[in-house]
Amino acid sequence: MSVFTKFLRGWQFRDSSPSLTVGDECSVFVAETNSDGNGHVYIGDTHLLVEGAGPETAEKRVRIEVTEFDETNATGRAEFIEVVGESSYTN
């Protein structure tokens, strides 16, 4: 990306509930996890339940693959792949 292009990124109004496509792989922060080993991810107001993201992934950045997505309610499911990063501030 050129220097000039970097200044032009983000001149847009971004939806508060972004859409995802089944099969998408992305890295995101896990907000919290359930006792049954599933994690909750919020991308704006879009809510994903991440299967296999246990308590050790809470507040960490993880790689996931989207497996289901409902555009109307902005909710879906994803599969945990791996932990790829930490929060800026780790407890």
């Binding site: 001149w11 847009q12 971004r14 972004p18």
Partner: peptide, 13 residues
């Protein structure tokens, strides 16, 4: 309020 300039981690890390 409007989402102007908002970027998520999935848009650009």
């Amino acid at each position: 309020l409007t989402g102007f300039g908002r970027e998520y981690i999935i848009d650009r890390e």
